[in-house]
Nucleic acid binder design. Structure first.
Lengths: 195, 195
DNA sequence: GTCTATAAGAGGATAGAC
DNA sequence: GTCTATCCTCTTATAGAC
């Protein structure tokens, strides 16, 4: 049999990535088959290979694109005031950005070990650049005598772990609004690094 | 061919669980085959079924045992002083216990979605009981006017996420000793909830 | 660009010999 | 209790028709 209706190169590609994203987030990369992804898109398994070299490339594309977008978005909203102000901007940005993309965030943190060595290195480098932005802020805060942080590297990882953890429990229909969650976490971060 | 040497019922069982633990932690439940586990133990795949009903039971046993042991260990070291003292005990216990069992912790946080519905509910209930211990401490601290926490439930999850995050980066041969890490994180927790 | 069909192999789990 | 052998299903990926 021929194609169903016509060609869909511009539309099927994004739908493949979207289906992979949803399924990887829900069941995990290793537990999802190419057939499941194809079924979600509404095509046969073979057709997927017009859009990705293989399953690994699908995962890598999702993670790399996410990390690059994250860095661009952070730089677009970063300001240049004092460290406390910059930390607040970073914290609120991180929470909002991650709550808006729970599936991407989940994959980016959970599927690192399913990347090939080469792909892992590329994603890890991008993660390092993101963390470095926070380390810069903490270092500035120490210079300004505004923060008291025993170890900048450890503190940056602790803060990111705390903030990212929100995505493991936050539900849109839950008790708290995004704004309330943002406020609660920002206050905890602020106090945790305070002098 | 018959058995290699003799019967090993008392020794092979633990070795099967240990092999599953190591491999699940390194590659993920879904990515590990029963054949790989058998190879790690040094038996053929069929022999594993003398020790586990199936692959799912192997995962559930690891996670449930871990959560039960965690609760018992926590209760064994908990004290009854003021909230600040109790929070310090909890924080230091959590860090030590988790650094001593990185593979179990990793699995307990990463493989929840690979549990069957029934098994997930059982493990989740145990996790809830652990979190409740921390919520009790935070509530006491608010009553004592020692803590200022906008939301006890959120704060307990934030603290646990921050502390558990240590296992994703800590390396025995790294720059910081366990005692140093423990101290850094305890100070951050203390300040984060301070009045 | 998508289909059907299939290659080539790995997966979980079981049967029966020893 | 462990082995070998095997069943049956599912897997990724490719080939060729349309």
């Amino acid at each position: 049999m021929a194609r169903k209706i016509g060609s869909h190169s511009e539309i099927t590609g994004p739908r493949v990535r979207q289906a992979a994203l949803t399924l990887f987030a829900r069941h995990g990369y290793a537990a999802v088959s190419m057939r499941q992804i194809a079924a979600e898109v509404g095509v046969q398994a073979g057709a997927l290979y017009n859009y990705t070299a293989d399953k690994q490339a699908l995962l890598f594309d999702l993670m790399q694109t996410h990390m690059k977008d994250l860095l661009v978005a952070l730089d677009a909203c970063s300001d240049t005031g004092n460290a406390l102000r910059r930390l607040e901007t970073f914290s609120r940005f991180h929470i909002r950005y991650h709550l808006d993309r729970p599936d991407l965030v989940f994959i980016a943190y959970m599927e690192l070990r399913n990347l090939s060595d080469e792909n892992f290195a590329a994603v890890e480098a991008l993660r390092g650049r993101y963390e470095a932005r926070l380390r810069d802020i903490l270092t500035q805060g120490i210079d300004e005598r505004a923060f008291s942080v025993p170890d900048v590297k450890v503190a940056s990882m602790a803060i990111i772990a705390m903030l990212t953890g929100i995505t493991t429990w936050y539900r849109e229909e839950g008790r708290l609004s995004r704004a309330e969650v943002e406020e609660i976490y920002w206050q905890m971060v602020r106090k945790a690094v305070s002098a």
